[in-house]
Amino acid sequence: MIVSIFLLVIGAAIVLCLIRLIKGPTATDRAVALDTVTTVTTALLVILALVFKRYIYLDVALVYAVLMFIGSVAIARFLEKGI
């Protein structure tokens, strides 16, 4: 019951980030919004592991965190004309 409220709040947070992702005047704004969505989604995956009682979803969350960190760094390096 209470977990479903948590999930709803997280859904609202993701929708707010998506608004900034669509509106964002510069490319960096969009990258920041995407990075925030990543962190929120990592927390969401861990809470989903609790909901479904699956230990292995924690692995999924860790893989997601690793890959999206590298993605954020790649976007940032591209925006500052590093690569």
């Binding site: 209470i2 948590f6 709040v9 997280i10 609202a12 947070a13 707010l16 980030c17 900034r20 927390a43």
Partner: peptide, 17 residues
């Protein structure tokens, strides 16, 4: 603890907007 965390996640997204 999860509730506090979720609340701050929401506030962070709110700040982004």
């Amino acid at each position: 603890a999860i509730g506090i965390g979720v609340l701050f996640l929401f506030l962070g997204s709110f700040g982004i907007v």
